[in-house]
Design a protein around this nucleic acid. Sequence first.
DNA 1: CTTGATTTGTGCGTATGTATG
DNA 2: ACATACATACGCACAAATCAA
Lengths: 241, 241
Amino acid sequence: MKLTNKSLYSQARDAILNIIDNSTEFMAKLPSEQELSERLGVSRNTIREALKSLENEGFIAPRHGVGTFIIRDSKNIKSNIAVLDSFTKIITNHGYTPGTKSLYHDRRTVPEDLTSKLNINEDSDVLYIDRIRTADGKPVIYVEDYITYIDGMMERFNSIKTESIFEFLKSYDIKISFSSCNIYAVISNEKLQKKLSLKEPKALLHLEQVHYSTKGIPIMYSDSYFLSNKFDFNLVRKVID
Amino acid sequence: MKLTNKSLYSQARDAILNIIDNSTEFMAKLPSEQELSERLGVSRNTIREALKSLENEGFIAPRHGVGTFIIRDSKNIKSNIAVLDSFTKIITNHGYTPGTKSLYHDRRTVPEDLTSKLNINEDSDVLYIDRIRTADGKPVIYVEDYITYIDGMMERFNSIKTESIFEFLKSYDIKISFSSCNIYAVISNEKLQKKLSLKEPKALLHLEQVHYSTKGIPIMYSDSYFLSNKFDFNLVRKVID
DNA sequence: CTTGATTTGTGCGTATGTATG
DNA sequence: ACATACATACGCACAAATCAA
């Protein structure tokens, strides 16, 4: 009998994240793996899987022979750039009300430089989507998406009213699992200033991404431009020995 | 008897990374965990640890019930921003010869806004270091470091000739383990243009970091400014369920 | 449509090593 | 020297997903 659809380690992770968010003092020590194992009623291995996941996201720092310490909580993190969230969630996390100002799309032949990135033939089609996302009504992100074309996509995109491309792809049983992302700082050119209603050149954070499905197949290429002063992108960088 | 100072899983990781870098076809499939386990003579658990690490760095994508697939190799990755490398290594990886153009340092009271970040009293001192790093002789990174002051640090910093702050800290038995990093795009102001020998405003990638030791103690705050057009910063972003 | 083989995912138990205080 | 706590490693069992016969 299946009680939940979540794995044990994922449930343990949630429980530990709860401890983290409720702690107040700086560098508080978590209960030992042994104690967490007993308290949550799962094996130490399962606890360790949960801790590893939290360590990867930068919440905790284990010290060999000493204990595991909380280095930050999830409440104050507005956006972890290593986590692939929707624009809607990123804007919401920063305390703004998200919206979409303009939306254009067409079907076109894949641009030459994207054939290798999307691993498709040069005469293949893509669904091109051009969007301006807003925070409290003001333009903050400009996005251009190129999605490997599937039969009838134009028509379905017209009929389905969703702000989320990820949701749209789910209707084709495609679930985006990760993206390979290049990060650049750019100064807005005329096109970008027009799109983002800027009167003067501003610094933008440019993310160039190839999105992959759970099957590891490249599905979508995106260029997104963030008004950098509106967003806090956080990341934990680790030394690899 | 200790034959190596590397953990088994780390050795397995190296062996698998070697397979990855030597594969040619797109989305090639790795040998199964079972086979890797037998071939490398370690347990399946150890193989899984190695694979998990490679998955976290975006080299492979496992598919439940199917196999593990190579999505990129390490040869073409110039700089994974989630990995905390030295500036020297980042510049070298991009194919340039690294150097340091200017170097200034002093001892000063900690700036007020850094007391909480470094978790020190407001009357504590820091070692301030101001550097311009070059690639093939051209300025490409401007860095300002603030290190929690330890007795005699000024004198020792004068006498030790190293380009690496990390190496300098090791002489105090402090090993940097990770940093918490905020990422911004900025347009160079007059000060930055002077430091980086720029004739006109350019887009810079600004990393604001707090560096922690292996003990999880904040040691150093850094502001670094990268000439964005000279560097490729890559990152794998994952959907969290 | 069912079955079986293969492969990754999850979970437990145990033992030993290493760092810290 | 000792206890505590995390790190590494092995073996085993079963679940779940996929695919081909």
